[in-house]
Simulated scan of single mutants.
Amino acid sequence: MSTTGRTATAAPDAVAATLREAPFVRILAAADGDSVAASGVVARALDCPFQVSVTRTAAERERRVAAVADDHPSDAAATLVVGDDADGPALAGRETPASVTAADVARELGASPDPVLALAGVVAAGEMPGAGESASLLAAAEDRGLVERRPGVAVPTADLTDGLAHTTLVHADFSGDPTAAGAALADLDLPAERDETARRAVASLVAIAASGGDDTPPRAAAAAERALRPYATPESPFATLGGYADVLATAAEAAPGTAVALALGHDARDGALTAWRDAAERAHRALREATTGRYDGLFVARYDAAPVATTARLLRDFRSPEPVALVVGDGEAAAAAVDDRTIGAAMRAGADAVGGEAGGDGHTGYARFDPDEDDGAASPDTKEFIAAFRGAL
């Protein structure tokens, strides 16, 4: 697998032509919200049997392809890779969110894509709804009354305490702690029926809490924007577009089967919310309790129980003083950068040094390896992985 993230996304009409003629389609999605949403958009437009799987490394993807080939040996079966580079059709999702391109593929196949699912993928990719090529999706959703912008904060549930405590769109003092989130809201003395003034007060609370700390990097304010002035989604499984994206992104890592079921339109809301809450609590706890190290251009956090990809994204946006954040858990690691730093290639170098496997692109990456035990301290393999990753940046 190429890990540079520079291979161009295939043209939607070319992808559609390949999928249209296939008797069976295997879709292999990267473990992120945009890729999973894009996979759901395409899968819902297919007229043939399909299988959607979430893969995190090149080796895992190859194993999935081989397993499906055993069950469907026809050479005519098609494989669509979403979120990574590939030899065949691929929706890379970096220059343009994969969900936007997936919607174009669905139209080429004669289907009407779900604009809310596709826009949730756009938000999960770190973009604002309606930005760039997603403008037509937002217009379609607004025309059909599927989204409505309002003041406030983007959370997936009607329970604001639950939403603020578990959102991974921001990190603040109350993050991961429902009691602390409830106390912060109580201080606002909100009315029982929240009007626009009350919603703005909550938004101000979140904006200040997420970006005003002494150890908060300047980029935190921009990152927190994704959580403010949300689009309400009354016909979606979740209360807001940003909340939908948040659940997809965390579930893609913590409960990929549930995330895929959600993107395919199945009743997976409760399971997805359970995965979201658990992953959020572990990620926010990791940001507070991790063992950290700062290097030139790199900030490293070690915490065994971390959902590494979710934690790396939060670390980059809300805590890292360096442009690259690396989170190392128990036998796995993830990195996130503010721009293209060939992260995928660096993750592969780190994995190769310890006999592991990796995947990623220029901005994000993931590695899996089997660390030696060392009484709770950083194992020799963990140290070697970090050193190799640093050397490859």
Rank of each mutant, 00 (worst) to 15 (best):
1 M>T: 09
7 T>W: 11
13 D>W: 13
19 L>N: 00
19 L>R: 01
22 A>R: 02
22 A>I: 09
25 V>F: 05
28 L>F: 00
33 G>E: 05
33 G>S: 03
37 A>M: 08
42 V>K: 01
49 P>K: 08
53 S>F: 04
55 T>V: 15
66 A>R: 15
68 V>D: 15
79 T>H: 11
83 G>M: 02
86 A>C: 08
86 A>R: 07
89 P>S: 02
90 A>L: 13
94 R>S: 09
95 E>K: 15
97 P>D: 04
99 S>A: 14
104 D>S: 14
119 L>M: 07
121 G>I: 06
122 V>H: 06
128 M>G: 13
133 E>C: 10
140 A>T: 10
140 A>W: 02
145 G>C: 08
149 R>C: 11
149 R>V: 12
166 H>E: 05
175 S>L: 05
181 A>M: 02
187 D>P: 00
192 A>I: 12
197 T>C: 11
199 R>G: 05
208 I>D: 15
211 S>L: 04
215 D>C: 05
216 T>D: 01
234 P>D: 08
237 P>W: 03
239 A>Y: 10
241 L>A: 01
246 D>H: 03
250 T>N: 11
259 A>S: 02
260 V>E: 05
270 D>F: 05
280 A>C: 01
283 A>T: 03
289 E>C: 10
289 E>N: 12
291 T>N: 12
291 T>P: 00
293 G>I: 07
295 Y>H: 15
305 A>D: 15
312 A>G: 04
316 R>D: 06
320 S>T: 09
321 P>F: 05
323 P>W: 01
327 V>I: 11
334 A>H: 06
338 V>H: 06
342 T>Q: 15
346 A>L: 00
350 G>S: 04
351 A>T: 02
353 A>D: 01
357 E>Y: 04
364 T>N: 11
383 K>L: 15
385 F>M: 07
